[in-house]
């Protein structure tokens, strides 16, 4: 996975069926990138739903969150609606997993993204990263600690 203190490479992916979104659009904001294996994980309070409950805590730190998986744009649209998610999910769909590979968090065997977190500062530098065992939801304490560290060093 990409190291801390490297510049996060830009990318452009579908955010909705008819809209593309570039990482560079968030310049000036802290960004949380959360790569995850798949939409529709069956557990109650799964990782994306959990982050959905925490958006205003992220906002306090001037941070936006982007979810990224290899699911297609229509799949993401249905998933967002079903779980009432209020943040952007990006489809790393074609070429499959290209952005996940770019960040070094693609599982070639399973053909899906790993469960990985990156926190970028307002300049787009990776300030914290974390690779979670695929079956374990890492929660958000690491993310908030990283955002706290970024804001305290300003």
């Amino acid at each position: 996975m990409l190291d801390v203190n490297t510049a996060a490479p830009d990318f452009r992916l579908n955010a909705t069926p008819d809209q593309k979104f570039s990482l560079s659009e968030l310049k000036g904001k802290n960004v949380i990138l959360t790569f995850y294996p798949a939409d529709w994980s069956p557990v109650c309070g799964d990782q994306m739903s959990l982050y959905n409950e925490m958006l205003h805590y992220f906002n306090k730190y001037n941070a936006d969150i982007l979810g990224i998986s290899v699911d297609g744009k229509w799949c993401h649209a249905a998933f967002r609606e079903a779980r009432k998610l209020h943040f952007t999910l990006l489809a790393d769909f074609e070429p499959k997993g290209a952005v996940s590979k770019l960040y070094g968090v693609y599982d070639e065997k399973k053909g899906q993204s790993e469960r990985a977190l990156f926190v970028l500062d307002a300049e787009g530098i990776i300030r914290w990263n974390y690779l979670s065992p695929v079956g374990i939801n890492p929660g958000a304490d690491g993310i908030l600690d990283a955002l706290e560290m970024i804001s305290s060093k300003k």
């Binding site: 557990v43 309070g45 805590y57 374990i136 890492p138 929660g139 958000a140 690491g142």
Partner: peptide, 13 residues
């Protein structure tokens, strides 16, 4: 309490 949960690493209920 919710916030303390986040800081404590709650990852679901």
């Amino acid at each position: 309490q919710f916030e303390s949960g986040i800081m404590s690493g709650v990852n679901g209920t």
